[in-house]
């Protein structure tokens, strides 16, 4: 058993790198785009908020695997954009994640008292400057719990990139057991363990950060 795992380790390490790369890159894309979507949905001028509602509906209503197929087989192969599976997966996960993150950020912004914006404007800040300096910093702090949840969802869902041939953990596991059918159970149990450890440590780290960035006494909505 240990020997099996020792033999498979280099390959699994490769897969793990890809899995982590997918997670990090698609989270970055999803977070940045999600912030824009949330801000424009709240502060944007007609018809932008409606376009964003539509975007969110679509990306939240379709299975990830269908998004992957549209991006990879559709846009890349059929249309000929020639993006590799890894990139297609990042866009699929990132654009879908943005739709969920936009929701997280939006409800955070909505929980910031209106007076914050009013006070910023009364100092002479432009709307954009007020959003950047007053609203966004508070929004980010309020979003940490929702964002942590999203983080682990994305981490687990990178496994679905298997379906368009990204050579991440699951695909490496598959390669290993196709060559050595005896390895199948230990290898996949080991892969499960890797995911489990990553999910648990991500949760632990993020809840530590959540506490740290919850500045002393910072409580939204408690004014008096």
């Amino acid at each position: 058993m240990l020997e099996i795992l020792a033999n498979s380790l280099p390959q699994l390490a490769e897969g793990l790198k890809t899995t982590i790369g997918l997670t990090v890159l698609s989270l970055i894309l999803g977070t940045i785009l999600g912030i824009f979507l949330a801000v424009i949905r709240i502060y944007g001028k007609f018809p932008l908020p409606y376009l964003i509602i539509f975007y969110e509906r679509v990306f939240r209503g379709i299975p990830l695997i269908v998004i992957f197929f549209l991006f990879y087989f559709g846009l890349s192969l059929q249309i000929g954009l020639n993006i590799d599976p890894f990139t297609a997966a990042i866009f699929g996960l990132g654009l879908r994640g943005a739709a969920y993150q936009a929701q997280i950020f939006r409800s955070a912004i909505n929980s910031i008292p209106e007076g914050q914006m009013v006070a910023a404007r009364s100092l002479g800040m432009s709307k954009l400057s007020a959003i950047r300096n007053i609203i966004l910093p508070q929004m980010l702090r309020l979003s940490v719990p929702g964002w942590s949840n999203e983080f682990t969802i994305v981490l687990k869902d990178t496994s679905i990139a298997f379906s368009i041939g990204v050579i991440e953990l699951m695909r490496q596991g598959r390669y290993i057991y196709v060559n050595n059918p005896d390895y199948v159970l230990p290898v996949f149990l080991f892969i499960a363990l890797i995911y489990f450890i990553m999910v648990i440590s991500a949760n632990k780290t993020l809840s530590y950060l959540e506490k740290k960035y919850k500045m002393s006494g910072f409580e939204i909505g408690v004014e008096r």
């Binding site: 008292p113 914050q116 910023a120 009364s122 100092l123 002479g124 800040m125 508070q138």
Partner: peptide, 20 residues
């Protein structure tokens, strides 16, 4: 108007200090 507002301070009943 942003230039003008610099010359007009405003103090609110509910303070509206920036929470963060």
């Amino acid at each position: 108007i942003n230039k003008i507002r610099q010359k007009i301070g405003f103090v609110f009943q509910e303070f509206n200090l920036f929470n963060h």
